[in-house]
Structure formats: structure tokens, C-alpha cells
Design a protein around this nucleic acid. Structure first.
Lengths: 347, 347
DNA sequence: CTGTTAGCGCTTTCAT
DNA sequence: ATGAAAGCGCTAACAG
């Protein structure tokens, strides 16, 4: 078997140049694009020599070195907390689809400690899916030192970086309105911080909607959990095991709603009949499961997010500077919480 | 509010040097470690000047530039197909735990196209969780050009890279033996390629074990699916809806087993009683769910994998060269497929 | 059309 | 104890 490759070291542009009998500049030119501005600028014979030399050596330009010169890494970073959440997978999928044709590689950062990492590593653009309470000014600082950021946050104002807002509040109210049209005993599943008190606009919409309907918030109807699938499952089981269990459950994320559906079925309840369950986020997982999950979510969210991120990464799209991107929300009525009317009320 | 940061450009070591009134060499020295070999080599006053200058500028050394000099990126790449699989999450978690104290950042590559990416981007070490049929020689090529690789594969031989084997075959036989001790109608859930024919050692163990027990493989007992959670759920539903449904289900991955449990419960079957379900992989998700999932899996797998990867990344641990790392497997009997004896047979 | 050269930000001898 | 300077692999002016 021919030993086609070499020494255990990565081939450099210089080795290619030597093997092809040309200068490194020519190699760089041939491999990375046009020279100057106008005409062709390369002869076919030389180009071929270079290409075959590169091929033989298994040469690929060192991105770190290229980055240091051009300032571009051909990389975008996705900082994703909760990788197990289908929402994250949808982000990844959409960004990958959009990045591939541009020769840009999406790298995923599962680490919660994105602030430190982004201070050190460079990417053409970075998406951050959650800024914690202690890091509210980190995006501004990072943006000031040259990091191109797109953050997903309901409250942050754009200061040198883009903010994506999903308008979850109004969206979640859609979900609650849907349930209130047929239910009065409505439970809630929501991830809670260690303090134990529910927070965030998605939970707020629950409380506000109940209040608006003149229904007091029952503490035993609020199932706080730790953010894990197992936790959601346990919380749902507790809710649905109550003597006067809720006839509907509003979950602040789709994945919690999926856990609730599984828990309900385990308890022998017919979802969409004995109990209605609605989620938030409108993930494909929920859409595909059986019974399919009713949910609310932004329209065309992931693709537009991906488009913005890559536009920022490439610098293309002569759009205006950083700003806010809002997403209109919509109600997706499916099997787990069908339409109800007066005749089909569960109370 | 004081405008502490500057121009929208990342501060360089030169800016720090100027602000501190020292040379770039000194800055580099202060911030990255000892100079020379022996004695201290830095005076406290200068060190302080440098540190405070760096602080004020929000300076962090540019990793790309550092990489080009040192050849180290302080990065490991995890190439993970099937990010939704809890197995992948366990890998990520373990590697992050092990990498953090070393100042190494794990980057996740969700892209299936790892060969191309690894040819371009550098990392101190790379873990690859699956090599497809068309890429069998890619690891060797990459290793020859200087990439430090750890691949997870049952068959590949180490040629300049490490191979991790889980010895799934013998492990899966453990699972089947467990089920055969109480069942004769045993179904199988397994992801199948587009060809539609089940492959791989995990499925082979199923067929072999049945054969060994003198039980023919029934085609309608083999639930092939597309690798997604939803697909596994559908396949399990089909299996368990058969007139003479299997009394036990062997799933070639834990996540498929979890789907099977959900499907069984949806159908009103008591898991661990009416039907036994066992998985492969022994993930924490399975362990924590209710009923807890019986499974087989390697012992201490993720931590040892992480240890090896980071050892390769740092070059520490004066171990021998690349080789094969085998993992002994073990049966974990939990609620979804309890111990059975002659008296408790379901046939 | 091709080669020479400077320099990106950083580390690292080697002088001082 | 500190600084000057070379050079990592690459790209981009500018000559030729």
C-alpha cells in the first residue's frame, strides 16, 4: 500500500509551493480565490501543478493562520444551554443548512461558560441562546471588543449586538386563551431556578391569563421542576395525580409538554380528551409525536435566525446595524389540546 | 457610565505592552506562564502593571495567533452524530468536566461531514463517534497529517489514532440472555439504514442469541426505524400492537428503549410486568426514568473516554502510542426488565 | 502572469 | 529581570 502521506506533520503552503515549483503566493492565489480584482490572473498549467501538488500532500490551508491574516475564521459558534432540548437541535439544524453552502462551519458550545470562551476564541459570529442574570453586560463588553453577537433574549437592548426576541409573552397568552376556552382547572409546568419561584415571561403569561379570567393561581397546580426531562415528568405526574387534578396543562416548553403527555398516558389518561396539554415553542418533535402536541411558537423562527446569523458572519447583506428582530407568534392546534366549545367543556 | 472599552477591535498584546510601558515579551511572559526554566524571572511591580493594563483593556490572548506559534489550540473537537441521543450528551458532559480544569474548551461538531472539517480546523484532539462506510480510511489519512484522533468504532484498527471499542457484541448478548430467561417472544427495535436491512453487532447479537435458543427470527418482530425518537416510538407501537405481541423487547439503543416504554404505556401495558423492555448503552436518562430502564453498558465508559481524549490533547501521561481501548460490559437490571425465574415466565 | 516582501498576534530564544 | 528580534502559516500589496 503506497504511503501517500508524510511525516505526521501537517503540510504547509511552503511544501506545496516547493513541490509545485512555484511561490507560496501563487499557491495561496490558486487555492483561495481570485487575485487582484479584474481579469483571470492565473495560467491553467500552473494552477494544475499547484492543485495536484496540494492533492498529493493532502494539503488544506491552516485556518488559524488564515484567520490571523484575514480576521475571518469561517466559523460560527452556537452557544447552547440545554443541548437536550429539541429547540437547540432545531437551531443547529437550521444553521448548518444555511452555513454549508457558504463554507462556514458551525461549532457548538455546550459549555454554559460562554463568556470566558468567547473572550478567547474567535468566530465570525456567535449565537447565544441565554444570558444569565450575572452576565447581562457581557454581550455589550464582547461586542465592544469586536465579537459579532446575536443573542436570544426578551429584555436585552441591542448595544452593538443583535437581539432576537420571540415575543413569548403575547404568544403564551394565545396558548392560555386556547385552554381557557374549555377549562378552568389549568396546571402549569415550568422550569424554576434554585430559588424555587417561577420566573420569566412564559410563566407570567400563565398567571396573568388566569387572573384575567378571574381564576386564582393554585400553588399545587404549579409544577416547578429542575429543567430536566425527568424532572418535568415527575412534576407532571404529581399534578395529574391530584384528587381534583387539572383538566389542562400549560407547559412553558415543548419538551416539558412531551414529558407531561408521557406522564398522563402512564396514568391512564387520554390526552386531548381527559386532559389537554399545550406546549410552548412549537418544535418538530412535538409536531411529530403521537398524539401531536398543540403548541404556540414563532413562525419560521429557526430559518430566519440562521439567516441573520450568517449574514452577520459574512458581512453580506448591506442591512442596517445591529437591532432587534421580533417574531410574531402563532397558535398551532393539534391533537393534545384540540378546539373546544361550550358543549365540550371539561368543567 | 464610563466607556471602559475601546474601538470595537480586540486589544492586542502590543496595546497592553504600550499601556504598561513594557515589551510584548514581558506581557506574554506574565500572562501565560514562566519564562526560561528555573527561577522566578519576573518582578512583582512589572507583573502588576501588566496585569492591570490587561484588565483595563479587557485583553485576552488571541487563540488563533497563539495556536500558530505553539501548535496547540486548547481545544478539543467532539464530532457527534445523533446529538439528540442521550449518549452524546453523556460524552459532552464527561469531556467538559475533564477539560475545564485544564483550560481546554470542547467544541461540538454536529455536522456529519467531519472529514472535511477536520482537514481544515485544528484541535489538540478530536473524538469521532461514528465512521461511515465511505470514510473508513479517513482516520488514517487525518492521523498521517497530524490530527490527533480518538475514534469510536468496533472494527477499525488503530493506525496512528486511538480506537475505542465497547465490545458491544458480548454486552448485548448479556441483555438477550437476561430476556431469554423468561421470554420466548422477543421483539427487537433497531435503527436501520435506508436499505432497510438491520446491521451492526447490536442487532447481530439479537439474531445470534435467538438462534442459540432455537427460536426463529420473526420478521414482524423486528422493528426497524429511521434513527429518530418518533420513528422508534412508531416502530414500538407497531410491535406491541400485534395480536401475539412480543412479551419482551430488546432495543439496540437506550433512547429507542425509552420510546418503547412510552409506547407501551400509551397502549396500556405495564412495563416490567406485561412486557419487559431492555436497552443498550446504560445511559443516565434510562436510569432515572420511571420505570427505570434495564440496560447493558460499559462500565465507567464516559469518564475513561474523556480521560483518554484529554490525555491525547495535552500530550501528558507518558503512555504508549495509539492503541485500542476496550470496555467490559455489564448488565444493569432495573424495573423495566426485572429478574425472572421459571415461575415468572411469560410463556 | 508570477515572485518578493511585509506583517497579522503571538511565543520564544538570545542578548542585554 | 527585561527587551529585541525571529518566525509560526498564511494573505495581500506591490514589483517585476
Amino acid at each position: 500500500m503506497a504511503k501517500t502521506t508524510g511525516t505526521g506533520q501537517r503540510p504547509t503552503i511552503r511544501m506545496v509551493a516547493e513541490l509545485a515549483g512555484v511561490s507560496t503566493a501563487t499557491v495561496s492565489y490558486v487555492l483561495s480565490g481570485r487575485r487582484g480584482d479584474g481579469g483571470p490572473g492565473v495560467s491553467d498549467p500552473t494552477a494544475d501543478k499547484v492543485k495536484s501538488a496540494a492533492e498529493r500532500l493532502g494539503y488544506h490551508p491552516n485556518q488559524a493562520a488564515r484567520a490571523i491574516r484575514t480576521g475571518r475564521t469561517n466559523t460560527v459558534i452556537l452557544s447552547l444551554t440545554m443541548l437536550s432540548d429539541p429547540w437547540s437541535l432545531s437551531v443547529i439544524e437550521a444553521v448548518q443548512r444555511a452555513a454549508a453552502p457558504l463554507g462556514i462551519t458551525p461549532m457548538i458550545l455546550g459549555d454554559a461558560d460562554w463568556v470566558k470562551v468567547l473572550g478567547i476564541h474567535n468566530a465570525d459570529a456567535v449565537f447565544v441562546d441565554a444570558v444569565g442574570a450575572k452576565e447581562r453586560d457581557a454581550p455589550r463588553r464582547l461586542a465592544a471588543t469586536g465579537t459579532t453577537l446575536v443573542v436570544f433574549d426578551e429584555l436585552l437592548e441591542p448595544e452593538g449586538f443583535d437581539v432576537i426576541r420571540s415575543l413569548a409573552g403575547p404568544g403564551c397568552e394565545l396558548a392560555m386563551e386556547h385552554l381557557l376556552n374549555g377549562h378552568r382547572r389549568i396546571g402549569c409546568l415550568t422550569a424554576v431556578p434554585s430559588s424555587g419561584i417561577p420566573v420569566g415571561p412564559r410563566y407570567a403569561a400563565y398567571a396573568r391569563a388566569l387572573e384575567g379570567a378571574g381564576i386564582p393561581v393554585r400553588e399545587d397546580y404549579v409544577g416547578g421542576f429542575d429543567g430536566t426531562t425527568a424532572g418535568a415528568y415527575a412534576a407532571a405526574t404529581r399534578l395529574l395525580s391530584l384528587a381534583d387534578r387539572p383538566t389542562a396543562v400549560y407547559a412553558t416548553t415543548d419538551f416539558a409538554a412531551v414529558s407531561a403527555i408521557n406522564a398522563a398516558q402512564r396514568l391512564g389518561l387520554a390526552v386531548g380528551k381527559d386532559v389537554d396539554i399545550i406546549g410552548v415553542g412549537n418544535t418538530v418533535e412535538g409536531e411529530r409525536m403521537s398524539p401531536s402536541l398543540s403548541s404556540v411558537g414563532p413562525v419560521d423562527f429557526f430559518d430566519r435566525l440562521a439567516r441573520l446569523l450568517l449574514q452577520r458572519a459574512t458581512g453580506e447583506g448591506s442591512d442596517a446595524g445591529p437591532g432587534v428582530l421580533d417574531f410574531p407568534w402563532q397558535l398551532f392546534v393539534r391533537e393534545s389540546a384540540p378546539h373546544r366549545n361550550a358543549a365540550a367543556r371539561l368543567y
